[in-house]
Structure formats: C-alpha cells, structure tokens
Design a protein around this nucleic acid. Structure first.
Lengths: 244, 244
DNA sequence: CCTTCATTGTGACGTGTTTCACAAGCGAGT
DNA sequence: ACTCGCTTGTGAAACACGTCACAATGAAGG
C-alpha cells in the first residue's frame, strides 16, 4: 500500500503518525496545562482537520471581544457536539476552567501553536494556467500563515511573466529553489496529466505538504501529507442526495 | 443540533439519511445484479464521497480500453484496499464476476447512475468577485454533469457584466430564477460575511446541494447537503505534520 | 465435463471515533 | 468560608467504519 494515509480525499486510512505530547505547547498563563509526558499517542487526523475551524471560530469571537467561551457555545457556533470539542482538545491538554469555559485568546493561540501556525510558511505554486493565476492572486493565504514564494510552469511561453509581482520560473528550477529556500509546502495546479510528475519534483525538493488541485490521487512517500481540493468530486457526491 | 451531517468539513457527524435500495440501478446487462429489496439501510456518506473517485478512475481505464478490472487493481490505482472497494460496492449490489473482476464500462455507468450523474445539473453561482469569475470560467464542470446556469451578485456595479457569455444578475432575482428553472445546486463564492444570507436565499429558492467556497460553516435545513472547499483549512491542518 | 485459477461478496472481527454521563473543580454570591 | 450552579475532562459505552479471510462461483483450457 502506498502512502495515502491522512494524505487523502479517499481518506480515513489507518493513521500511524505519532505526535509530541502537548507539553510542548504549554504557555505562560496560569491555566493548568497538566500534560502527559508519556502518552506518545497519535492524534487522529480527523481531529487535526477540525482544529483550523476551531481557530477560525475563536478568531471571530475575539473580534467580538468575547473573553471566554464554553464548549457548548463553541459547539453551537461550529455545528458539532460540545463533547466532541472537549474530547478533541483533551488530546492536547487541559485548556479550560470548570464553570467558566475557555479563554478565547489563550485557546486560539494554543491551537495555532499546535498547528504550527505561529510562523509563516513559504509555498511554491506549480502550474500557471487560469487556476494557477487565480491562486497566485488569492489574498486569503497570507492572512493565515501561508505565503506563495515561487511560481513555476513548464510552458516557456509563460515563464518570465509577472504574476502578483512574482516571475513565473521554469519548472526545471523547482527542486533547486525549494531546497535553497527550505520550502516544504507546495500547491499543484497543473493539468491532471502533469500532476504526478510535479509531485515527484516537489518530493525531490523536500516537500512535506501538498495542496493538490489536480483531479488525481498522488503517490507520495509517507512523510508527505496531501490534501485534495476537488470541487467536481464534491458536487458529484452531493448529487446522490438530491431528490428529483 | 443544526443540520450539519454529511454537510460538513467538520464532518463525520451521525449520518441518518436513508437511501433507495440498489434495485433502482439495475441495468440491461446480463451481470447478476441481485438486489436487496428490503435493506433500506443508509449508506455511509464516506462511501458516497469515494464513488466519484471510483468513477474518475474507471474513466481513465476506459480511455485505455481496459475491458475489465479487479478490485485489487482498482484499489492499487486509487490507493485504498481492495476489500474497501468491494465493501463499498456491495452497499449497492453485486457488480463483479468471480475470477474476472468488474466490467469497466458497466461499473462506471452504474456508479454514475447511483450518483445521479446520468443527467445534467444546472447550478447558480453567487458572488462574482475574483473567485466567482474564476469559477464561472472554469471548464471542468460541464465535463462532469454540472453546468453553471446563472450568475448573481449584490453589487450593482458588476450586475449586467457578461462573464463566460452570461450576464451577472442581481441577487434579488436569485430565488425567482432558482424556482422558475428548478435549480437545486448552488455555489457560494461570496465574502465570508454574506455567505449565510446567500445560503438562506438559496434554501428559499429550493437548493438541495451547496458547494461553499466561503470560510464559514453554513446553517441549512436537513435536506440540504453542503460541501466546503477550504484550501486555507487544508493548509492549516497539514502544517501540523511538518517537521522543522 | 471436469479441473484449476482468480476474484468476488460478505460474515465476523477489530479499530477508530463519537457520545454519554458524571465526578471534580472553579468562581460568584452571600 | 460555604454553597450553588456551571462547565470541564474523561472513563466507559455505543457506534461507525475498515479489514480479514474464506466459501462460492464464473471463466478458461484441456
């Protein structure tokens, strides 16, 4: 079996990644983060995938100057159960206070730290067709710890073109650029048939996370995480539920 | 609890939708589709979400003129286990032959029928900023049973503008247009703050499936399915796994 | 027609995930 | 300082999903 664990739209394959105990994330407040130094247990990917939503929701509470929030209320906002939120957070430590709930700012910082969002990640973007252009011009990444730092395409006609103040570079330079700049996140926006070879180059360049817009299941080594962006599949699965 | 079952990025909430028995899908070949007229059991959404990938993979086999395929080979191509594919298909009936595998064309047709892809679905697209423009110009939907049939925006400055040979219409007309044309699929590409109100309008217009590009969890009635397209969350969850 | 081979479909099992439900603990009010 | 009400964190139970392993069966070739 190839490495398609959490890597996958097709998804929920056995998850075997182990994870540092949450001690790592204790921070300077007097909240008791009792922490299991032992429990080297692997946190389910499904939990990890929920964390960004928690962060996003906490941010919106911060904007409203809510100082604290209960699991009940957070659950209502997100549309899950309160027990699930408490269970999810308990994988990482104890962040709440009985009778009070969670400190919004503290919890949001903590989850960001867990997700390693307390820094900026440079990314390469491969495939500069229409989709690639749209992604390169997208303003949402920077607000969220991610920055596109290099654009690449095989087509020599577009190489050199400036997009969002960055030149499109030849695909031949991808590996070099990734290595020199220690870039570990890549976005694939190539045509379907070039996606795998692009992924292979990214792996050679040291990629650890790939956001894949091409409608193919990529084969990557175990240490690389892949998430698919696949609107067509999403639509095709929803139509199953439509009546009439 | 609001209706966020299969509707959700946050996902895997209890699934309670029941589903017609696969008899519905028996077609005119001599393959034995023995079918459980009784078993009115609900098929897991996680299975439904895999079916489009199966279809896509079967299509690529069709292009290579492969007449048949074993669960083993299909599994290898997709990156899941053979048992999973057999189990998934068994929810709908018996489509294979012992010693031989599955007839590629037949299986692909059958799954398309199950997913209701043997017809065309008209969609409305709301929010004609950069993202909306990119989606409106995207060529991938039509190849897959989905067609954008109407564009909408609140901003009177862009209303009237032609995009991909279609005029942008005022949001005020959304409900009417959806009802008159029996449109049950909507795409939301509005700014975050307008997403919920847009969803509400779509519901009023009779929507049953929403593809949501806005970074918010939408509240919709039970009979509406929502899938999120959320590249930022995807990145934010992947960074957890990056070493260094 | 019989044998061999490959491969399905599915009970039984195992694992992973969610939910239940409650003891423990914090804080506010008196 | 004590009580009360609220909310956490978590064992234990329930549920959902994935995998194993094998009897059943179709196809191919003598």
């Amino acid at each position: 079996m190839p490495a398609i664990a959490r890597t996958n739209p097709i998804d929920q394959l056995p998850e075997t990644r182990d994870v540092r105990p949450s001690a790592k994330f204790g921070i300077d407040m007097d909240l008791d983060d009792e922490v299991d130094e032992l429990a080297q247990l692997s946190i389910p990917d499904v939990v990890i995938r929920r964390l960004p939503i928690y962060v996003r929701t906490l941010h919106s509470l911060l904007e409203k100057n809510e100082p604290s929030v209960s699991s009940e209320e957070l659950a209502r906002l997100i549309g899950v159960t309160a027990a699930q939120i408490r269970r999810d957070l308990s994988y990482f430590g104890k962040f709440g206070k009985q009778g009070k709930g969670y400190d919004v700012g503290y919890l949001s910082n903590t989850i960001e730290r867990i997700l390693k969002l307390d820094r900026t990640w440079d990314m390469v973007l491969c495939g500069m067709g229409k989709l690639g252009h749209a992604i390169a011009n997208y303003r949402g990444f920077t607000r969220s710890s991610f920055v596109i730092a290099g654009l690449f395409d095989t087509d020599s006609d577009v190489v050199g073109e400036m997009v969002n103040d960055m030149p499109i570079q030849p695909m031949a330079d991808l590996v070099k650029v990734m290595r020199e700049n220690h870039i570990s996140v890549g976005i694939i926006a190539t045509p379907r048939k070039n996606a795998q070879e692009t992924a292979d180059l990214m792996v050679e360049g040291g990629v650890q996370a790939i956001l894949n817009y091409a409608p193919v299941i990529l084969r990557v080594p175990d240490h690389v995480t892949v998430r698919e962006i696949d609107p067509v599949s999403a639509l095709q699965s929803m139509s199953y539920y439509i009546n009439e």
